[in-house]
């Protein structure tokens, strides 16, 4: 059975081209394509700045991390950004081991990520 992941969206006041996306569940090889499609749809709809809230993202594997890097790259190509906040320590360890902390924009708190939006 595919791992459960849910994405919740919220507008960000004062930023018409930005969306807050809450990741809830596990991000792994069974559901990356679904997540990829949903985030790419946001990019295509003009939301080039994404703030991803990982407070309820329990798990991520190397495949999941691969698409996060892909989102970061895609956003930059569109002069936007893909920011991550509220990462739990287990997920952060995976990001750190892969050496992706310097490639992803990671914030401790969601407020910090929102404040960094241009």
């Amino acid at each position: 059975m595919e791992s459960q992941i849910e994405l919740e969206y919220e507008d960000i006041k004062g930023h018409s081209n930005a969306k807050l996306v809450r990741f809830i569940g596990d991000l792994d090889a069974t559901n990356v394509e679904t997540v990829l499609e949903k985030i790419c749809n946001l990019f295509n709809d003009g939301f080039i700045n994404i703030v991803a809230d990982f407070k309820k993202l329990r798990y991520v594997n190397s495949t999941g991390l691969g698409i996060l890097l892909h989102f970061s790259k895609s956003a930059k190509e569109k002069n936007g950004s893909f920011k991550i906040a509220n990462v739990n320590e287990n997920v952060y360890e995976i990001i750190e081991i892969i050496g992706a902390t310097t490639l992803l924009e990671i914030y401790d708190e969601i407020e910090e990520a929102l404040a960094s939006l241009k």
Partner: peptide, 9 residues
């Protein structure tokens, strides 16, 4: 880790 590689880690 490179942006353009989605897999292989």
């Amino acid at each position: 880790p490179k942006h353009d590689e989605r897999r292989g880690r």
